[in-house]
Design a protein around this nucleic acid. Structure first.
Lengths: 318, 318
DNA sequence: AGGCTGGATGAGTATTTGCCCACTACGATA
DNA sequence: TATCGTAGTGGGCAAATACTCATCCAGCCT
């Protein structure tokens, strides 16, 4: 149809083609017949309509906003992967959704028949992820803890993520039989010199993927609350600009590690900013915005799982 | 992702899949990998998103509204074909657009290598369509006039559509050497008994497609203005409820033929309400709304080419 | 407890789509 | 007027997508 003048005619036809394709659900062949052009031309018209933004796609679902935010974060921070889950309006800081998404991502890695080395941090969030996982049978993978799971008194910490995950999926695993933040730098050398620890750290260094919680550092920070560091140490870190931590390594708003202080005594596997290996951070909540932003800016993580409200806040800060 | 509860989870995933497909332009394979499902499932999720109207397609182009109207008319009146062209805001009653669309539709039929019998009415609109056609070479088709092209004085009428079209496309053709509305019923018998007329009417009866203008009947009706019927006859028809005419057959608002009056003396090929053969009406303008609606309701036509404003008005009446 | 129903799944296959290429038509330029 | 360049076109093919079918599983009725 439309034998209208020159330039417009093509767009008119493109709009028609787009309408027939997307709204009426015609095949390009049908469109070609209806418009009296070849199938190839119909195809060109349809893609022209898309290219010229004549057709707009809109998603009528809360998820859509999450996907937009995830795409924005991926773009902004050059992420390998990003998942944003809807925030439960009734309980905005509830980790369930993020944990479920984390579990799904873990499951995807675990389902891989190829043997993988999977590194794990610790904390409530990761523990919640693991709890959400179904039992699986993954003897091909190897789990390794990035961070010591001992309390100074020798007992295991509450969030023994690696062991719990290993139980669930039947995979060999290396816990880290250390205190996360040891008493002094000398202790650190001593500990790291032990063969099992050396092996575990070496394994951690070649993890194909690692999952870590991103913690914030302030008066209520998990590190301090769980007794890994003291209130005084926490205050010092804050004074030095620390905003977050991952596997006990404190970093500032740009993701740069804080020199000295507790970082001189952290026994965890080192962070590897900018690595090509997947490093997936999990976190949500108002308090963690700056920590997440720091981790992203410093490329301490290249994948992120968070919730809508947090994603929005992080993007607003960025 | 999303291990949310039961029913919602599927829709969430469908929304994700839809987003990835339409907004992010992923292939279903990529979506399958990202969502950790099989390719088939990803396909199902995408089509579910469409089926559940989670993805909406919006067309940012004036044509879109026309397409919507055409679809509505097609649906409402069970049409084989409908084309609605944009109304030129500067000249709302200008036939150019509709004529162009009519020409395009004619051209599609003419381009068919299969031999077709093409029936044609008369009038300004059809003439304008024919003028818009390019020269073609279609000896395989046969054109036939449905309506007499003689004036009472023996001269050909101004809108000799069949002959003009035949010239342009080089097709054999049967004009109808009759006066459209003869003097009396007896004349009609006489005329119809003539062999050339019989043959032409028989040909018209098996036309694969016919193009007719839809005329309105009132003081300014083309029938009266062009002298086919008198003002008195026109007034009588109106009194009997006539709202429109096609190839001189007057009909009421439901598309029922007016009994007697001029209809008793119309020499044109008979209308065939509800036929499966394509009968394409062309018309636009405020005055023709009721006529078009009647023709549609009575299934006197099963295809329509009109403009946006008229389509809207007809649907509003319907 | 057993069997039935309805929806989801994966495999396999047919259809549809996207894209590369060579060719043609049209307009501008020398 | 001849030639070049650009845009559009259709053929052909590989990739992507849609569909069909047999099967499986969960929930539910008997």
């Amino acid at each position: 149809m439309a034998r209208a003048a020159g330039e417009t005619a093509r767009l008119d036809d493109a709009a028609r083609a787009g309408w027939l394709y997307y709204v009426a659900g015609n095949t390009q062949d049908e469109i070609a017949r209806k418009l009296g052009v070849s199938r190839q031309s119909a195809q060109r018209l349809v893609s022209l309509a898309v290219a010229e933004k004549l057709v707009k796609f809109r998603l009528d679902h809360p998820i859509a906003r999450c996907m937009d935010l995830a795409a924005a974060l991926t773009e902004r921070f050059d992420l390998q992967f990003c998942d944003v889950v809807p925030t439960d309006p009734a309980a905005p800081e509830l980790a369930t959704g993020v944990a479920a998404a984390g579990a799904a991502e873990m499951e995807r890695w675990l389902a891989d028949p190829e043997p993988r080395v999977i590194g794990l941090g610790t904390g409530r969030m990761l523990r919640a992820c693991v709890e959400q996982l179904p039992r699986m049978d993954c003897p091909q993978h190897h789990l390794v803890s990035l961070v010591g799971n001992m309390s100074p008194d020798g007992s295991a910490t509450a969030y023994n993520v690696v062991v719990r995950l290993a139980e669930k999926v039947g995979a060999p695993h290396n816990p880290m039989p250390l205190i996360a933040v040891v008493r002094c730098a000398d202790d650190l050398k001593l500990m790291h010199a032990q063969e099992p620890v050396e092996n575990t750290l070496a394994l951690a260094a070649r993890a194909d993927v690692t999952f870590v919680g991103v913690g914030h550092i302030d008066e209520t920070s998990p590190l301090a609350v769980d007794g890994f560091i003291s209130q005084e140490e926490s205050a010092e870190l804050i004074a030095q600009g620390a905003v977050g931590e991952m596997v006990a390594w404190a970093f500032d708003g740009e993701g740069r590690p804080i020199e000295g202080l507790t970082n001189a005594r952290v026994s965890s596997a080192p962070l590897d900013p900018g690595t090509a290996r997947r490093v997936c951070g999990l976190a949500l909540g108002h308090a963690k915005q700056k920590a997440i932003l720091g981790a992203l800016r410093g490329k301490l993580i290249n994948a992120l799982i968070t919730d809508e409200a947090t994603a929005e806040a992080v993007l607003a800060l960025a």
